[in-house]
Design a protein around this nucleic acid. Structure first.
Lengths: 341, 341
DNA sequence: CTGAAAGCGCTAACAT
DNA sequence: ATGTTAGCGCTTTCAG
């Protein structure tokens, strides 16, 4: 148990209190607390116990103020987006061994990216990792002039910022190749509109069809990021004649909407129509959904993002490529099968 | 445009730099930057321009170190949980006008609540808001001895911590009353197990049935928080004889799984079976899902949580009730209808 | 191995 | 209205 007999007057416990209790100087306590070299084993033990007894907690802010470096990486993420949740998890695990702390700043309906970034700047972050930012390229470039900026899951033209993203086009090649191998020829694509990655995925779909000499079958349906937009696309699909036998969809959420409407329309998936999603989100993994999908390698994306940020900060490595593209892989589940007949 | 001619050597711009440029003393600049009284309009203008030209940003950490108060509220949330996203949004909007900053700390598969809390303590948060924490009550009480702790969306026995939560039992009363009004008598409940709120909702379901003299029809099926668990419960439901004509479900995610399996099992919702969810999450609002559900008032929950935390910090108000319970309301959509026949 | 002194960037208390 | 002094809690010299 920790003991309440700390400093008087409800003040918080400081290094000085620990030093007094252990009968040593303040800097020595600092050394012990940081596991830095320069203290005898006996002293270490004594200081440790004193700190324990007082329930001492180091003050990160004071520590950072004194240190030249803050070892703090700011992360801007969308609180609504489930995929960002996966990325944040990965960022924590990647930053920890690298010796960096994360400062999270959320984008919400009432708090735009600019505010999210501004608060991180005040916190003295040394670098910024932005997840799927919508900020204009010019703003990103301006930021990047001030500090290392790594954009995850969005392509950016500017030379100034680092980018780590999935090879979206390759993802659609995987999906289309899989369907063609199963024997499909009439393969449609439900598009993501202006969403990050949508243009690449659309391009991948087109390229892949051409690669299989199926140019004539190209069919891109307007869609979006959400279930509702998928549902709308599925209605178009139901009405189409001849109907495609397979469809690749911008993401899993949208694919879920597609599945729902198809089945309610009386079609059997995958018997009548095969469906491939994108993201391998938790949605896709649900046993009763069992969606075949293109998986993004979130662990790798986040490891690279942190590695890039820290490399910039520590001036190691000649910064290889400005843009790092991570290959996705296909997860085959139960929504794809050979076409009927 | 900001000008790069700040301090030499890539150091960051400080108050001293601004003071030098404006030809005034450091504290005066501080006064101007904080909009504190004690500077002439002319000086203000001059200092403002100097700061602007140098691209000066105040250092929050230094500021907080110097101030006795940090005006920082720590928030622990689950990065996986969509509902927490809504709550975080609300917390930002509530804390801003109160003059408090938020420090976010995520719980992820690789980062438990203890670590999340520890990092916030180091950040010198003055109070903690925990969203649906799984931490044992004893830990919560120990924390609460140290600083104000507000638990949101979970009932806690300990007298030490403040609680703000939805009246879960009342929510199930609303759901059951609605179904009874439609004419249902065989109403089952898919349970949430040990999830926060599950016990209350189960109790509300039981009370409501008894209120309608339907004790004999009581039927609680094991479920959980996820679609998969709902799917499993639905399979039990399909096999039951006589089959209930309506079912209340622990939350919307779980209800989605229920819906999916019911429909694939050949039942029509709501013709053959009515379904009511809980949370009014974005899932429920999807046009093709259109789930009747019990909505939690997130704005009110978050406003109360912040109000409670700040009241504790500022010693205002005699802390009214330790537990504040917010009434939910029913959102009727397309998954409920009178029973057949 | 240990202690004394200085200072990170800022703000509060006192002077003027 | 403005400047001077001191110190938040910590780490980094530099002496001993």
């Amino acid at each position: 148990m920790t003991d309440a007999s700390g400093p008087a007057g409800g003040r918080r416990t400081t290094l000085a209190d620990v030093a007094a209790r252990a009968g040593v100087s303040v800097p020595l306590v600092s050394i012990v607390m940081r596991d830095a070299p320069g203290a005898s084993a006996a002293t270490r033990e004594r200081v440790r116990r004193a700190a324990e007894e007082l329930g001492y907690r180091p003050d990160l802010r004071a520590r950072l103020l004194r240190r030249s470096r803050s070892r703090l990486i700011g992360v801007v993420f969308g609180v609504q987006h489930p995929f960002h949740g996966d990325l944040v998890s990965g960022l924590y695990t990647a930053s920890d061994p690298a010796g960096y702390e994360l400062a999270l700043s959320a984008v919400t309906p009432g708090r735009d990216e600019r505010r999210a970034v501004a608060s991180l700047l005040q916190d003295r972050c040394e670098a910024l990792i932005l997840l799927g930012p919508q900020l204009p390229t010019s703003d990103l470039a301006e930021l990047a002039a001030r500090m290392p900026v790594v954009v995850v899951a969005r392509a950016v033209r500017s030379r100034a910022v680092d980018v780590v993203r999935t090879d979206d086009a390759a993802g659609l090649h995987l999906a289309v190749d899989h369907l063609v191998e199963l024997g499909h020829t009439r393969i449609a694509h439900v598009d993501g509109g202006r969403a990050p990655g949508a243009a690449e995925r659309r391009r991948g779909y087109r390229e892949a069809l051409r690669g299989h000499r199926l140019d004539a079958e190209e069919r891109v349906l307007p869609g979006g990021l959400t279930e509702d937009e998928g549902a709308a696309a599925a209605r178009t699909l139901l009405a189409a004649a001849p109907r495609p036998t397979a469809v690749t969809v911008f993401n899993d959420r949208c694919a879920t909407g597609v599945l729902d409407v198809l089945r309610r329309g009386g079609l059997s998936v995958p018997r009548d129509l095969s469906v491939v999603g994108f993201d391998d989100s938790s949605l896709a993994r649900l046993s009763h959904v069992a969606l075949t999908t293109v998986a993004q390698d979130t662990d790798r994306l986040t490891a690279l993002a942190v590695a890039r940020a820290t490399a910039r900060l520590e001036d190691t490595a000649p910064a290889s490529e400005r843009e790092q593209v991570v290959p996705p892989h296909l997860v085959v589940r139960a929504t794809t099968a050979p076409p009927r007949g």
